[in-house]
């Protein structure tokens, strides 16, 4: 989707503002939101690409002006409602209740098997690599161009590399294809490459981009021979 989330190269956004001694969590609720991600994924509410796609549907002004974990809340709400986990009216009613009773905490109930599942997941991760029979079309050293067309659904074909020519510097094997996985179209694994672009190809003679190289990982369907 050609949304405002596709930030690479955009101007007029201001300075980077690092926060000294930044805490891991800025508010207590962030702890819950972090854990809702694997919990709701395990409940089948979304996969990783569906989760990202819903964040890209946040209205642009809101996307730019809200905290990052609010993006997660937005995606979880959209998918939770669609999956029948959240009833919108019930969610609103309960939200009002906790707003009026800020000292109240949600009910507590242990789920030890979920703690075990998280322990496994945190130390082993997930598997996005897939075996495919088709060999990769491109090899290291090939000159390629990222397809220039627009996109109406989730993609990792970032706007700033579309139509630009680069060189294949990594051939990684096949991975889940985000563009289909995000719309419920299945894994449809495709070969993944690291593509290298010069700053001059991306940004012309802009002084800030002098003597810079940008690498981005792109799936085979994004690329054509340059």
């Amino acid at each position: 989707m050609d949304g405002v989330h596709d930030l690479g190269g955009r101007q007029g956004i201001g300075a980077v503002r690092p926060e000294p001694d930044e805490p891991v969590f800025h508010s207590d609720w962030e702890r819950s939101v972090l854990t809702m991600f694997p919990a709701m994924a395990m409940a089948g509410a979304f996969n990783l690409d569906q989760f990202r796609a819903a964040m890209e549907r946040i209205p642009a002004a809101e996307y730019l002006a809200t905290r990052y974990f609010e993006h997660w809340i937005h995606s979880m709400t959209e998918h939770g409602v669609r999956a029948g986990i959240f009833d919108p009216q019930d969610l609103e009613r309960r939200t009002r209740y906790y707003q009026q009773n800020p000292q109240e905490a949600p009910p507590k109930k242990a789920k030890p098997e979920q703690v075990d599942a998280l322990r496994q997941m945190i130390s082993n991760g997930d598997e996005y690599r897939r075996e495919v029979e088709a060999p990769p079309i491109f090899e290291v050293g090939d000159q390629v161009r990222v397809k220039p067309g627009a996109s109406t659904t989730h993609t990792r074909r970032a706007g700033y590399v579309r139509g630009k020519a680069g060189e294949i510097v990594g051939v990684h094997g096949a991975y889940v294809f985000p563009d289909t996985n995000a719309i419920g179209g299945g894994d449809c694994p495709e070969h993944l490459y690291t593509v290298r672009f010069t700053g001059a190809e991306l940004w012309g003679d802009e002084p800030n981009a002098a003597n810079t190289i940008v690498h981005i990982d792109q799936w085979e369907p994004y690329l054509t021979t340059a």
């Binding site: 809702m36 986990i85 939200t95 209740y97 109240e104 242990a110």
Partner: peptide, 18 residues
Amino acid sequence: AARVKAMEAILVEKGLIG
């Protein structure tokens, strides 16, 4: 915080989060 508590309460009641 209120919105997240509401989400958490539903997930806890449905047994989807511990």
